[in-house]
């Protein structure tokens, strides 16, 4: 059997979902038999490859960079998985939506007692006015709620996807789990 090409990406999230992924522990070896990790914060690969079977997306879409990334990823992925509450609901990153992006920037860059307070210009990507869950931006095939989803949930969903089954997500997780 050919190995499936798996990618994981990290948009606006805390990396907790990736940590939970690693919590699969020794069962990672079982998965490793069936997949190649072709792109991930966990591996040293700078550009998103062309043909990916499954991509797990952690985090909400908050900045212009997130937006471009997710559109590119969608175009090159067969099964796109919203991985964790930030990707599924917007979660904590979306808390800023009711106050607006500018007040967040102001709080971070202008209000603290800095020597030369200024808004960042080049290095930090511009914030979108509204933080969105991934499915509000591109089509999502599978949603795994949870903050983070438990290692067991991740293992069972990824295993199912690898063997071509449609995964049973909601029996083991929910928003905020």
């Amino acid at each position: 059997m050919t190995k499936k090409r798996l990618a994981t990406v990290w948009l606006d999230g805390c990396s907790g979902c990736h940590m939970s992924f690693l919590d699969i522990d020794e069962r990672l070896l079982l998965l490793a038999d069936k997949l190649d990790l072709v792109y991930s914060p966990l591996v040293d690969q700078k550009t998103f490859p062309d043909k990916v079977d499954i991509t797990l997306v952690e985090g909400a879409v908050s900045s212009e960079e997130d937006l471009h990334k997710i559109q590119h990823i969608r175009a090159h992925t067969r099964i796109l998985v919203a991985f964790g509450d930030c990707a599924v609901t917007g979660n904590v990153p979306s808390l800023r939506n009711s106050v607006g992006a500018e007040s967040v920037l102001r709080r971070a860059y202008m209000e603290p007692d800095l020597i030369n307070p200024q808004f960042p210009t080049d290095v930090i990507p511009a914030l979108l006015p509204v933080v969105r869950p991934v499915h509000a931006v591109v089509k999502v095939d599978v949603h795994i709620p949870g903050c983070p989803p438990s290692a067991d949930t991740i293992f069972s969903v990824v295993s199912d996807l690898l063997s071509g089954k449609s995964p049973e997500v909601m029996t083991s997780t929910h928003f905020g789990a």
Binding site: S98, H135, P145, H174
Partner: peptide, 22 residues
């Protein structure tokens, strides 16, 4: 509310969030 979502197998919210100011 969380339980209701789980009971109805809501894995994501298909309608757009309205983000009210409260």
């Amino acid at each position: 509310l969380q339980t209701l979502a789980q009971q109805h197998e809501i894995d994501y919210v298909s309608l757009p969030y309205l983000y009210p100011q409260r």
